[in-house]
Amino acid sequence: MSKAGLEHYLNEHPFFRGLRPKDLAWLAELAEPLECEVGDYLYREGEESRDFYLIQEGLVRLEIHAPGQGDLVIQTVGPGDVLGWSVMIPETRKTFSARIFQATRLLAFDAASVRARAEQDHHFGYELCKRFSRVIGERLQATRLRLLDLYGQPS
């Protein structure tokens, strides 16, 4: 995809939609397209948060290792999902592993560059924080609903 095409693609995506053209152009320049095979790890539990990702195609499992139980799947993320909201917090380490479950195409954005730009340009930083807040809110809501065990036997 050309840089102009990528810029357009980002502007169409609900996460990036509405950012200033100069921010979209910068993000399009920063974005690194990746293709991952089944079994690859995007990152592992305990690693420093280096990138955040926009999944274009495929399926990624978020897992946590439990001794004696193996890798427990917390959630899967797929096309259109943004993965890695913790990059906005410096020096964060990953609490889950992200493993490719179906061949995946994605865009990776370097966290240090994004944070540096956000520090310099607070408008950009605020816009990005709003978007990540929405992602965090949606994850929290989904977690709460799953805690309710809605499909379980009514008490």
Binding site: Q75, R146, Y151
Partner: peptide, 23 residues
């Protein structure tokens, strides 16, 4: 199809059914 809790050799999505709507 998605499940709240993956078990065994489940090879599909894990999460809320609402997460299947956006794509």
């Amino acid at each position: 199809v998605t499940v709240d809790r993956a078990e065994g050799d489940w090879d599909g999505a894990v999460g809320l059914v609402t997460s299947l709507i956006a794509p």
